[in-house]
């Protein structure tokens, strides 16, 4: 009975994890280069909106698969373009990164709903076709692992996992990754070694915007199906997952999956007799309280990039 339950919950948990994972990865790029990006939430909303607009416009004239693909690509680009605002403020102008990020969040939320309301009147944008869940051929027949990981999967899940692997390789096995991380640890030293700190940070923030935009689009095409102006704090949760995962790709995978599982359990608790007895207030608050506890344990000896949040000042030692 328990096994059956786990088999049922797992695909939902993964579906919920993936947008968080890709957004947290975006945060990883940005923070590793030394720029705190609290605007992830807003950048997700931008991707959410762009994909909804693209798909709703094109799905009747093009085939749904093409429309969804285009929606994902354009959302990624829109996230990157919007994050330029954050890069400009926090890298070029040395503005307070947290305030700039907050402005991004407010701006994204306001402008997208403004435009959506102008377009549809209600402020919501509905799409007719989402992604279809598929079983992975051959692999889904493996006992235990098959039902958990390879049945009822979205293609975006595999895309995001591929990006995760790629990111790990990029950050830890290439000169580019080393330079990017150097900018987040000791930008003055990186500069002395001939690295253009400003350019690196721009690239990193753009990558974070692209990832968050993709994350927002994935929410739309997998479980939301409708743009409604908010991603309900997922961007902030991604930021917490980044800290929980101690700024490492694999750590982030674990942390986001924990959030995904916890949220799914809270959402389906009513249908499960054993969990229905636990008051919802505990289940819903569980991920946040655990995050606070984890922060308590990790914050004393934090692995945070040393220069994260500090504007780069060339003259400083």
């Amino acid at each position: 009975m328990w096994w059956h339950l786990i088999e049922q919950i797992f695909p939902y948990a993964i579906a919920y994890t993936v947008p968080l994972l890709i957004t947290a990865l975006g945060g990883l790029y940005s923070e590793r280069s030394g720029v705190v990006n609290i605007g992830l939430e807003g950048l997700m909303v931008v991707g959410f909106f762009t994909s909804a607009l693209t798909i709703s416009r094109l799905e009747s004239s093009l085939s749904p698969v093409v429309a969804i693909g285009l929606g994902l690509v354009l959302a990624t680009l829109a996230g990157a373009v919007f994050s330029l605002l954050h890069a400009f403020a926090s890298v070029t102008l040395n503005a307070n990164q947290v305030i700039s990020g907050t402005a991004i969040n407010m701006l994204a939320g306001a402008i997208t709903v403004y435009l959506a309301r102008h377009i549809t009147g209600s402020g919501n944008i509905l799409i007719m076709n989402g992604l279809i869940r598929r079983n992975v051929p051959v692999l889904s027949k493996i006992p235990i692992l098959g039902p958990l990981f390879f049945t009822q999967t979205y293609v975006t899940t595999w895309l995001v996992l591929a990006i995760l692997l790629l990111s790990w390789f990029l950050l830890y096995r290439t000169p580019f990754g080393l330079r990017l991380r150097a900018c987040g640890e000791h930008p003055q030293a990186a500069d002395a070694a001939g690295i253009n700190v400003y350019r690196m940070r721009y690239i990193a923030v753009l990558l974070s915007g692209a990832c968050a935009g993709l994350g927002g689009a994935i929410i739309l095409v997998t479980y939301a199906g409708e743009f409604n102006g908010t991603v309900a704090g997922l961007g902030f949760l991604a930021l917490a997952a980044l800290i929980f995962g101690q700024w490492k790709p694999l750590g982030i995978l674990g942390a986001t999956f924990f959030f995904g599982l916890a949220s799914t359990i809270a959402n389906v608790s009513q249908a499960i007799p054993a969990l229905a007895k636990v008051p919802g207030i505990f289940l819903k608050n569980f991920p946040y309280i655990v995050t606070l506890l984890v922060l308590v344990f990790f914050s004393k000896s934090t692995q945070a990039p040393r220069a994260a949040g500090e504007p780069y000042d060339k003259g400083k030692r």
Binding site: A95, A103, A110
Partner: peptide, 27 residues
Amino acid sequence: TKVPPEIADSIIATIIYFAATSVLMER
């Protein structure tokens, strides 16, 4: 008019962005 009410939030968000980049204006 036909202007959606979110214009107020957009204006406020833009103001906060420019207030945050006051360094630029100062410079």
